[in-house]
């Protein structure tokens, strides 16, 4: 017992209130112990209460200095809460909205759980490559019943579902969303981007792409250029990434598998 360190078995004994184990570890943990601390750093899931309590001690009662007050953050939280209430209310109508194959719809969608990230293809071309920051796409899928699930690059979706894209960038600007499927690339719309991580949205709310009637691999590209782009220009940049213009492109692909609705 003298050399016993924390491990799963020891934790089980402590949870069972084994008197010998409790007596041992009460003394043992009074001094620094690299083995036990390594185990605790690994944070067994069932010890989350200890994690939370450590955070409470460290972050609520621990630090002395005060950080700069936040003037705008609560407004963002309030906006997000209101938007989500609207999204929940409208989620049930998604199936009816996503009717036309390939039709780009602007709908308000839930994003519970958040989309999973992907960097399937993030490209920077042209003379501004050195200055360009990240442009990344991630996605979530909304089922016909409004349920949301994250989808990774190359992940599977069904024709009755709707894809919601999320981008991350370090600067404001505009970008075209281009969809590339068996019929070739087609521009779906132009969007204003702002720095940070945001759902792709326009004035109507979060943008969703109906997958109704789709099949096989679909690739989505967010195309941003320092020069004024047209929809045709964005499509051309997707067709020919080596066009030589100062452009940033983020890509995300999915596979639409029919017959599973």
């Amino acid at each position: 017992m003298a050399d016993r360190h924390l491990d799963d078995a020891a934790l089980q004994a402590l949870e069972a209130k084994d008197a010998r184990a409790i007596a041992h570890f009460r003394e043992h943990l009074a001094l620094p112990c690299p083995e036990c601390e390594a185990f605790l750093a690994g944070a067994p899931a069932r010890l989350w209460w200890l994690e939370a309590e450590a955070d409470r001690l460290l972050h609520i009662h621990g630090a002395i200095s005060t950080l700069a007050p936040d003037a705008t953050g609560f407004h963002a939280v309030r906006r997000a809460m209101r938007a989500r209430r609207m999204r929940r209310a409208l989620a049930a109508s998604l199936a009816a909205a996503a009717v036309a194959a390939g039709l780009f719809i602007t709908v308000i969608l839930p994003r519970a759980g958040g989309p999973s990230s992907g960097r399937e293809w993030t490209g920077v071309k042209g003379p501004e490559a050195a200055q360009a920051g990240p442009l990344e796409l991630s996605a979530a899928v909304v089922a016909a019943d409004g349920a949301v699930r994250p989808i990774g690059p190359g992940g599977g979706a069904r024709p009755g579902e709707t894809l919601v894209l999320r981008y991350r960038t370090d600067g404001a600007g505009t970008a075209f969303l281009v969809k590339s499927g068996p019929g070739g690339p087609v521009a779906l719309g132009e969007f204003a981007l702002s720095a940070g991580t945001h759902d792709l949205a326009d004035s109507g709310g979060v943008a969703g792409v109906s997958l109704e009637g789709e099949q096989g691999e679909l690739r989505f590209f967010l195309v941003q250029s320092s020069e004024r782009l047209t929809a045709a220009g964005a499509v051309e940049l997707v067709r020919n990434p080596a066009a030589g213009r100062a452009v940033r492109v983020a890509g995300f692909s999915i596979h639409v598998v029919p017959g599973e609705n």
């Binding site: 402590l14 009460r26 943990l29 601390e37 750093a41 200890l50 309590e53 450590a54 001690l57």
Partner: peptide, 21 residues
């Protein structure tokens, strides 16, 4: 920082065990 958090967790766990005794 995680190593230090582990020290905090060790101390908190020790205090729980002390109370149980």
């Amino acid at each position: 920082l995680e190593r230090f958090r582990a020290k905090v967790k060790r101390e908190l766990l020790r205090r729980v065990l002390a109370i149980q005794m």
